[in-house]
């Protein structure tokens, strides 16, 4: 089957800055794919090239096997990171307009928008102006705008940023539901834990390049089960000096310790018990966050 999106040696520069520097990527259909990386890694630029908002300097973009362009846009729903609404327009009209831009007739778009507003408990707001809505409601309306017209591919740029926990759940459930009904989803985020929960496959971007890609399980197994999570009372500064320890990440409540290949976790446990009161000790796969930090070096700010 054709990939949902395939990118080949994509390059985009702005002045002196290479925002995207030779990205090649196959995103299969039907999965939730995470485009992950710190701010400025080139995620948004890549997405904009997939949508033909930017033209690449070189390289090739194909969506469902077709070159990016006008016909493709009708099959893709897009929620940009910078998203807004016409403030003075009525909610239903705003959405009907967005739906009609994806190829529907005005009346059909209106009907679909109306159904979604009912479903997301915004029915009574249909006739109100956008500016009367709370921020959380506006976010829902924006999300509906992206999924009108049953897009085969949904591209969400930082969909969870700025959302309250309730809406985060609403969005997450919607995403999973749409995915189950067959939509391919690409979403970008700099929150590694969200990506870890939702994505089957990911690509890690840094400085315009893919530093790591594949299914989450592949990636994790490649790094081995050599992480340890320790929760304890007392001074934990000794951990860094122990033999076999590669690095220690302090999360406040607990620490994640990466071991060198071949190091014995049991030795670590013994050393810890001698010095502090251990409340929890767990051998686990490294978190995406740690993998990423390891890959790009510690000079990337914690996201």
């Amino acid at each position: 089957m054709e990939s949902a999106v395939s990118l080949h040696s994509l390059v985009k520069t702005f002045g002196q800055h290479r925002a995207v520097d030779g990205i090649s990527l196959e995103i299969p259909r039907g999965i939730i794919f995470g485009l992950i990386g710190p701010n400025g890694a080139g995620k948004t630029t890549t997405i904009r090239m997939i949508l033909d908002i930017f033209r690449p300097d070189s390289g090739e973009v194909k969506v469902f096997g077709m070159p990016a362009g006008d016909q493709v846009k009708d099959r893709v729903g897009y929620l940009p990171e910078e998203r807004g609404l016409y403030r003075k327009t009525k909610v239903l009209e705003m959405l009907a307009y967005q739906g009609s831009l994806r190829g529907a007739s005005p009346s059909a778009a209106r009907q679909e928008a109306s159904d979604w507003l009912d479903r997301l408990e915004l029915a009574e707001w249909k006739g109100r102006k956008v500016e009367d809505l709370s921020k959380g409601m506006q976010q829902k309306v924006q999300f509906i705008g992206a999924i009108l017209g049953k897009p085969e591919l949904l591209i969400l740029d930082e969909p969870f940023s700025g959302l309250d926990p309730v809406n985060q759940d609403v969005f997450k459930d919607l995403m999973l539901d749409l995915n189950r009904k067959g939509a391919s989803i690409i979403f970008s985020t700099h929150q590694m834990d969200t990506a870890e929960k939702l994505c089957r496959e990911i690509a890690l971007l840094n400085k315009g390049q893919i530093v790591l890609g594949g299914t989450l399980s592949q990636i994790k197994s490649r790094f081995g089960k050599n992480s340890v999570m320790v929760e304890f009372d007392g001074d934990g500064s000794f951990l860094q000096g122990l033999p076999g320890v590669a690095r220690v990440d302090d999360y406040g409540q607990y620490r994640e310790v990466r071991l060198l290949n071949g190091a014995d976790p049991q030795a670590l446990l013994r050393a810890a018990v001698e010095r502090v009161t251990v409340r929890r000790f767990e051998i686990m796969e490294p978190t995406l966050h740690n993998i990423f930090i390891e890959q790009v070096g510690g000079h990337v700010a914690h996201a």
Binding site: L51, I53, L79, E82, R83, G84, Y86
Partner: peptide
Amino acid sequence: LEEKSNRIMEVLLGSLT
């Protein structure tokens, strides 16, 4: 200007050239 300052431009460009 309104579409730019309301950050609606890119939403529209997702569907329009």
